[in-house]
Design a protein around this nucleic acid. Structure first.
Lengths: 192, 192
DNA sequence: TCATTGACTAATTTGGTTCTACGGTCAATT
DNA sequence: AATTGACCGTAGAACCAAATTAGTCAATGA
């Protein structure tokens, strides 16, 4: 016995956050689920928020791995952007913890949750930014401002994948790819 | 005397909504500001919300007129899109009533206010959609889905003008025009 | 000796109640 | 007929006691 207590705690907390959200998860609950005394949690984590941070950190790593897995260096840059972003947003909208956190932010506005989701967004933008800078260095795309461009790309995807659904039928992956191709690849004007 | 009571009421309500927001404006307050009995308001408007609707309706008309005023048929389509959208968002971000309503939605989530702002957004998208369809008919741009495209264009502008400011220094008009040009005009890939 | 524990505390949240002030009505007034 | 403001029912603000929670630390035992 004496299995890795730290791991037990993180697993229990992840399960509880996913099921009940951040606020509704109590430290007593986590301790019980993890089969440790409550004090033990505080030997590994300064407080509830730090425990949360560690879990989100893993989540981000998972997301980046997901995105990387669909990137294919032989494909054109814009195709990879689309694949990576689409995978990231799909992950976000299917992952139980993410669903719960987005929901909690919307209906309770928990501060710690808002901060974490902002952090996740920043990480995604950072990831994109890196890819864009590589593409610029390779001469694949013009020397745009990588920070603003990645920010805008993410916003465009969220608009198409999430915002659109609030008032319309969801768009298929193909439709989204089609729209993005117009903007990313060709620009609007015909001929010129 | 006996000046247009209806006009007095609308003016008083507009002033009060702009100053205090929708919820914090009471019908007693509007009546006092307009120098009429409260009952009089209800001879012109079914209820508070209908009074609000009339005011928002005028606001939208004002916005459309603003946008039209900067459109120049001799300029290329994308330039006009940029000018119109920029003017619309500038109007939105300078107009006292709009500022107050956006603020009220963010910090109090007043339902009637959310609905009105959604309505304003729909009107703007409708306006854009019309312009896009004309451009398609003229062969100036490819036959994209005008609904989705106008939706996405608006979201891109809001991202650059408003969302960006939440975590960064505001972008200048020139910077925004520059970014949009990349997406609207050329698309990202260099050479192809 | 030192990791682990859970009873404990201060702080926050909840749930139940009261009461204020609001939107809307309508009999009285002009 | 048009206008008014006193009046009504009620949504939600304000209040408070009770319950719950995050975090601590003296006691425990391996």
């Amino acid at each position: 016995m004496a299995p890795d207590r730290r791991r037990m705690i993180v697993e229990a907390a992840t399960k509880s956050f996913s099921l009940f959200g951040y606020k509704a998860t109590t430290m007593d609950q986590v301790a019980k689920l993890a089969n440790v005394g409550k004090g033990t949690i505080y030997t590994f984590f300064k407080n509830k928020e730090e425990l949360f941070e560690e879990i989100i950190s893993s989540l981000v790593k998972e997301m980046i791995a997901e995105a990387d897995s669909v990137i294919n260096p032989e494909l054109p840059f814009t195709e990879n952007v689309h694949r990576a972003l689409y995978r990231l947003l799909e992950f976000r909208s299917r992952h139980q913890l993410m669903i719960k956190l987005v929901q909690e932010e919307a209906e309770m506005g928990t501060l710690a949750v808002s901060e974490m989701l902002q952090h996740v967004e920043d990480e995604i933008i950072g990831y994109l930014k890196e890819k864009i800078e590589t593409a610029i260095a390779k001469g694949a795309i013009p020397a745009v401002n990588s920070e603003i461009t990645s920010f805008l790309l993410l916003k465009m995807y969220i608009a198409l994948v999430s915002d659109w659904e609030k008032n319309h039928d969801p768009l298929s992956s193909e439709q989204i790819a089609e729209i993005m191709k117009v903007f990313l690849l060709k620009g609007l004007p015909k001929g010129t």
